[in-house]
Amino acid sequence: MKYNFSNHRFTTLMVLLFFISFTGFGQENVAKKFKMLYKFNTIKQADNTRLLEVSFIARNKKNKKDKPPVFDAEIQFYNTTETEDILLGTAKTDDTGHASITVPASHKYTLDAAGYINLSAKFKGTDQLKRKSKKIQVKDIFLELDLKEIDSVKTVIVKAFTIDSLGVKIKANNVDVIISIGAMISKMKIEEATLKNGLYTFEFPTDIPGNIAQNIDIYTTIEDHDEYGNVIQKSNEKWGVYDSKELDSKNTLWSKYAPLWMYILLGVLLGGIWINFIYTLFQLKTIKKEGLTFEAENIPKT
């Protein structure tokens, strides 16, 4: 990957800014206190689409920990050629300072003489922020991931090739690939290899759980390659050994419902006691009734 700095207006801008602030007009512009970290990257994704992404973050020159993202900056993504820049799309940076577009797989890029795709991401600049531009050169590579059971051995086959201008497949050599499996938060590397003659094969481990359906997402990636940049390929196979244990739905001390005997014991205890209370009150009622009879018989009415 090649980076192209285009800061030619930097000096002019700085001089300008200096004067503005000196005369007291530029109080609001704090941008000059920051160094701009402007990064451009591309990933060729599993569905052969290409993700272009810019990370645009300011960093306080005095306090390096203070890194506010640049928000709402319009980034234009181009396929640059010798003659013109073909606009691929524009996007605005979000609250994390990132802007990205996805170029569909069907897009035909204009290549340069050496067969590279030249991509650039430009920020036009504003009165306060200087313009930024970054360039990347990548060669389009096709990464294939086959999962096959050969003689009941789970085999992962990674293939990579490029297509030359005549449409002929050329096997990619000496390309480092990483094979990983998908997990909830991140991918786990299971194999690292260099493709020989466009091919690498290995046995898949037999003890990976996978998800509840025993499915495993398997990825192969080329990372940061000088020619091909970042490429990712993905496949899925039911190769997991997930042991879908029965959910412990027993009534325990820490579940919502208690063990049965607790309800029984409590019910018996409380029931017994309260029945006795009620019986006592009932007896009191009888005493009252008897009292009324007694009063009617023995106490003369006044």
Partner: peptide, 27 residues
Amino acid sequence: LKLGLMSSVSAIAGTTILSSLTSDDET
């Protein structure tokens, strides 16, 4: 760079590479 490749694209919430790429806590 790496998280784009190494983070799980099929995150539960269905977030894109985008959000996975941006897990730098400072920012």
